[in-house]
Amino acid sequence: MSVTKLAYYPGCPSDATAMEQDMSTKAVFEKLGVELVEVEDWNCCGAAEVEDPELVYALNARNLAIAEKEGLDIVTPCSICYYNLERSNQALKADEGLRAKVKGIDSSLDYNGKIKAKHVLDVFVNDIGLEELSSKISKKLNLKIAPYYGCYISRPPETGFDDPDDPDTMDKLIELMGGEIVPFSQMKTLCCGGPLMMTRSDIAFDMAMKILDTAKSAGADCIALACPLCGMMLDGKQADIEKALHVEIDMPVVYITQLLGLALGIDANELGLNKNVVDTKDILGKVV
């Protein structure tokens, strides 16, 4: 295994709504023998709300430059942070004028394009690799799982690291852990509605409902995902969706890092499985 040390970019929800994603990411990498060094004094990537690309590049140049000084590739568990880090990385690498312009703002934004930006799922499946992971997996997930990828794992194609029509990195990882994939291909890459949550919650709720409902009809024990905004919509807001749309869903939603942690034999509380809003106890009973 070539990966031994990475710069870790947690993202803003890591100490709030998605703390279980942060906890499980750290626990899993520790178990895999990969040291995570948190990006010192990191700033927000701009999320989906900063639309000006140059502003996004400047915000992310600072985080990339801090990791570059450490000589480490940067990894994040959040799909939106990943998209912003990687598109900035590509733009800054390709455009010397842009690098100069960004550096002109402040010397701390002096990034030379020497590192890679990665999503944790990409690191697990493509860098560490399934073979290496399989040698460390000690538990079987006797679970039916709906793998939900959302937007930025596979789109846009320049930054996506999976097939935009039929992504399968998470599927492969789940199957390796003994999980069964339920029929879910129509929903895998459909947006969760999160970007409209605050301005058109009617649309956002309905979009999230489609995903939850499909997983339920397919007989899934849980939905697996890799983005805190999707997590907030599908897990955090599930009770609001049930109330607004007069339905009962009760579908557990877990981060892929939590599932990998369980398969690696890590304690459920250390993976924050008591922090997911929809109860995960039924899932834990099926990990053997």
Binding site: C151, Y152, S154, R155, P156, G160, P164, T189, C191
Partner: peptide, 21 residues
């Protein structure tokens, strides 16, 4: 203002218009 920035259009555009951007 109802665009989700989900990049589906950008991924599928045969002319690389980068509609989301």
């Amino acid at each position: 203002w109802v665009c989700l920035i989900c990049q589906t259009c950008t991924a599928r555009c045969p002319q690389d218009v980068r509609i989301s951007d």
